[in-house]
Amino acid sequence: MGNQKLFKGSLQTIILKLLETKVKMYGYEITQKVKEITKGELTITEGALYPALHKLEAEGLLDVEVVKVDNRLRKYYKLTENGKKETVNRLALMEDFLQTMQQIVNPKLA
């Protein structure tokens, strides 16, 4: 799907945004949430999700909490203080980018 390529570059921002609205989420939950919000239009591939999460964690933007659920361990991610600030920055960048794209794609509307 062509959309997936456009989507890939925004993956980290999407994860941050989702975690901003919900206190903590685990990997699988994130994939399902994106599917639900976009009505199946976009899907996060497993091979891209975890590297993105681990990168954000290494950058100190996400914190991890492991909880025992059913008979297994579940790793929850939540925003750190730095993560909250960075989410605001990245969302602003995304807004700017979308506006710029709008000017190129649809100059009359912009």
């Binding site: 591939t45 497993e46 091979g47 590297p51």
Partner: peptide, 22 residues
């Protein structure tokens, strides 16, 4: 199969990079 043809390999190598940073 949803992890793609390379299976968990991408996840492992990216995790290693992130852990090395830590």
């Amino acid at each position: 199969k949803k992890f793609g043809v390379f299976g968990f390999m991408d996840v492992v190598s990216e995790r290693q990079k992130a852990m090395s940073k830590r």
